[in-house]
Measured scan of single mutants.
Amino acid sequence: MLDDRARMEAAKKEKVEQILAEFQLQEEDLKKVMRRMQKEMDRGLRLETHEEASVKMLPTYVRSTPEGSEVGDFLSLDLGGTNFRVMLVKVGEGEEGQWSVKTKHQMYSIPEDAMTGTAEMLFDYISECISDFLDKHQMKHKKLPLGFTFSFPVRHEDIDKGILLNWTKGFKASGAEGNNVVGLLRDAIKRRGDFEMDVVAMVNDTVATMISCYYEDHQCEVGMIVGTGCNACYMEEMQNVELVEGDEGRMCVNTEWGAFGDSGELDEFLLEYDRLVDESSANPGQQLYEKLIGGKYMGELVRLVLLRLVDENLLFHGEASEQLRTRGAFETRFVSQVESDTGDRKQIYNILSTLGLRPSTTDCDIVRRACESVSTRAAHMCSAGLAGVINRMRESRSEDVMRITVGVDGSVYKLHPSFKERFHASVRRLTPSCEITFIESEEGSGRGAALVSAVACKKACMLGQ
Rank of each mutant, 00 (worst) to 15 (best):
V244R: 00
E128T: 06
V389S: 03
I159D: 00
G223S: 05
P59M: 08
K161T: 09
G44H: 06
Q323K: 12
G246M: 01
L415P: 09
I366C: 10
T326C: 07
G356K: 10
Q286P: 07
K169F: 01
G448A: 00
L243D: 12
V412F: 10
V302R: 04
A384Q: 08
S212K: 07
E128W: 07
E268G: 12
D187N: 06
G170R: 03
L184C: 11
P153V: 01
Q337G: 11
C371V: 06
N391D: 07
V305I: 15
R250C: 01
R191T: 03
A282W: 04
I110D: 00
A282Q: 15
R186K: 15
R429S: 12
H424L: 07
K15L: 14
A176F: 00
K190F: 09
Y289F: 07
I163S: 02
E237P: 09
V310M: 06
H141Y: 07
K420V: 05
A425M: 11
L430P: 04
V244F: 07
A173D: 00
V335Y: 02
T209K: 01
L134C: 05
R358V: 09
E48T: 13
G299P: 13
F123Q: 00
G446W: 00
I211R: 13
A201W: 03
A384L: 04
E435L: 11
G444L: 05
A176I: 05
G318M: 15
I351A: 10
K13V: 11
N313D: 09
L45D: 02
Q323E: 13
G162E: 02
L324D: 02
A10T: 11
L122Y: 06
F438H: 05
M462Y: 09
R7H: 08
P359N: 08
I293H: 07
A10S: 09
R46F: 10
S131L: 03
H156Q: 07
G318C: 07
A21M: 05
T437Y: 09
C457L: 08
R325H: 12
Y125S: 04
H416Y: 07
R275N: 09
A379T: 07
V338E: 01
L270M: 13
P111D: 12
V335G: 13
A53V: 04
Q286S: 13
M298D: 00
R275C: 08
E372K: 05
G318L: 13
L301M: 15
V408R: 02
A259K: 09
E242C: 09
R7C: 11
Y289P: 07
C364R: 08
E442K: 14
Q323L: 11
E128S: 12
L324W: 10
V222I: 12
R403E: 13
T60V: 06
H317Q: 15
K90L: 04
E67S: 15
A379M: 07
L430T: 08
T228I: 04
T354D: 11
K102W: 01
K104V: 12
F269S: 05
Q26N: 15
V241K: 05
R327W: 14
G117A: 09
I390Q: 04
L164D: 01
S127W: 04
H141M: 04
S375Q: 05
